[in-house]
Design a protein around this nucleic acid. Structure first.
Lengths: 210, 210, 210, 210
DNA sequence: CATGAATGAGTATTCATTCAT
DNA sequence: TATGAATGAATACTCATTCAT
């Protein structure tokens, strides 16, 4: 029994180490991916940054593609969790959307997610995956759509514009090029940028009562 | 004299053929680039699609990089020309911007330009080029900025939001992802989409007089 | 401790295999280089002769250029070592030079070194390298020059002829074309050839006392 | 008849132009070959230096190989002609050899001939040709051999050393590496160098009477 | 004849993936 | 289980040669 327990503990320990390692690999992959883009990211470099051998990476992820996909999912999960935590049902729709937008610009998420998501390589990668997996990005879109619908139902938002367009426009606020230019290039404060975007977006979609 | 004329014609004919071929190569390159992204685009495949030998591509473009750059410039030039033709100084600022937006969605330009411009590879490629060349993209941004300023001066646009943010948001309306999802995916009519985007954008940036 | 020892042995074994492989690659490279010259030597063929994949060659040498340079250095080192072993300070200058000449014709060194060194490609390759590395060939020349000077000081050698000419002529005795014609073509015994060359050379440079 | 004559003249004129062109191509080829070596010499560059189209070169020489061979033969012919002019049967053998050596160093011949002849590429090229053509180099060797034999018969030269070795050594005096180092590198006067070489060589091969 | 556009074989190098140790 | 050596497919670019004009 003690044996078993020791073994169990060992198992647990090993498992912990394993997970820790996986985390490190994901982190390194994300880093390199962000720096160099999909093609110029090599398994070799990721392994080197983690301090393990190339083969070890393949013990955790069956291919470069899967690894990159895992990086995306990992980021996305964190992002969705952040939204879940910040959001409460009690908020009015507009405030919900504002909260989501703030979350989007709050972490590093956008930068990375968008960069990943914007490359043709990634797109093809994800298109293949979509056939098999639930679609995280689509789920978020659906969520935002339902908030917009709720807002429309309350008369807060402009019902003339289709929800799909409003959703798409909401996402396009995340444009990594805007972020790069304004925040990284012109050193605009992120919070300030978010304020302006909210201003434009919500003025753009609110119902204009006459 | 007839000799000269014949020779001249021959010259013209050859030149025509040459240009036609170059056009075909550019078109094929654009196509493949759009389908596969920079890295997975091979000169071999471009040549094969045009129906010429690999070497022939190199008679027109000294390197893959230059070819891709030429694709971009070619598209961009057509795009800028379309804007120039459609725009008149007499228009009020808002109408100018609307015209530009219509142009952007009027050709295939956006799709391709954006896709090209969105990959990390392309970005790096263009960063290198920028040091030597005038920056077409930046020139357009400056033009839009000046129209926005003019609108602000007339009291048409919201002076609270910085022009840089308004410019960035204007560009983000071009998001290829919106286009793909709505037009290609949900078969929304392009003109309709443009109308909705104008609605959102201009409501978002107009001056709200109290 | 046994662990360590086993691990050590494994290390040694692997290292041995590695070095063995490197030796094989160098040998194959030398062979092909000798047969075909720099440009017509392909990594593909070298790999094929060794029986490994192309990539394996690159695990040992980062580029074709480096590989060729390594071939040269490897040969040259062996050659210089042979000279060092055969030479003793006690010998009179003439005997030292005779010993060196015998060494030169003793291995395959000359053939290969000279052939390598005689192609324009190689020359350019080494010119680049020379800026960074010590110059093995020049070092040997300096050594021979100092022996000649010592001989002149003793009155053994003709002081009228500049040492530089005597050094150059000494090297030209190595002419691969003589070797090929006489030894490979006419099957002259190498030792006999060396005797004749010594005869000509030393009669040519000895001091002629009247 | 006048027709015919005109046509003939035209024929001659054209033929002259043709030969002039061929000469120019040979000269350009020699130049580039000397600068860059066989492989880095491109037909394109040769044509460009002459100011004709690539195809024109092929009207004169069926392949790069043949062109290079023609360059060699052309140089060699000039070289042999120079020897023939300088040589008179009345000279004693040693003076004949001295004259030849002076000729060798007198033109650009050596530099180029040797450089050409020393690359592996050239060697293979010439080995193929040898099977079909008389061997210019061998003819010269035979000539020198017979002079040496004559000298030996007169008791001028050392009969112990085989004539073949003396011939080979005579040629090795031409070593382009000596030339480069001493004349191009150390700016030794060519005539002075030739004097020293004669001194070494003839002291090396003269009969030593006791 | 002269041209030079077109061809396509040839080659160095990279890197995801595998697998023996 | 972890390693990292070995693999080999993939690809940009060059240049001798051909041939339609």
């Amino acid at each position: 029994m003690e044996q078993a327990s020791t073994s169990e503990q060992a198992q647990t320990l090993k498992e912990k180490q394993r997970q820790e390692r996986e985390r490190l690999i994901l982190a390194a992959a994300e880093e390199v991916l962000y720096e160099k883009g999909y093609h110029d990211t090599s398994i070799d470099e990721i392994a080197a940054r983690v301090g393990v051998a190339k083969g070890t990476v393949y013990l955790h992820f069956p291919s470069k593609e899967e690894l990159v996909f895992a990086v995306f999912l990992h980021n996305f999960d964190a992002f969705v969790r952040a939204i879940d935590e910040a959001l409460s049902e009690a908020m009015p729709p507009r405030q919900q959307l504002e909260t989501i937008l703030t979350c989007m610009y709050g972490g590093f998420y956008i930068k990375q997610i968008q960069l990943l998501y914007n490359s043709v390589d990634m797109k093809r990668l994800f298109e293949v995956r979509r056939e098999q997996e639930p679609r995280p990005w689509e789920q978020l879109a659906a969520r935002i759509a339902s908030i917009l619908e709720a807002g429309k139902a309350r008369g807060d938002f402009d019902s003339v514009t289709p929800t799909s367009v409003q959703v798409a426009t909401f996402f396009s606020l995340l444009s990594p090029r805007s972020y790069e230019r304004l925040v990284l290039g012109e050193h605009m404060d992120v919070q300030e940028l978010v304020q302006h975007l909210k201003h434009i977006y919500f003025n753009g979609i609110i119902a204009h009562k006459e």
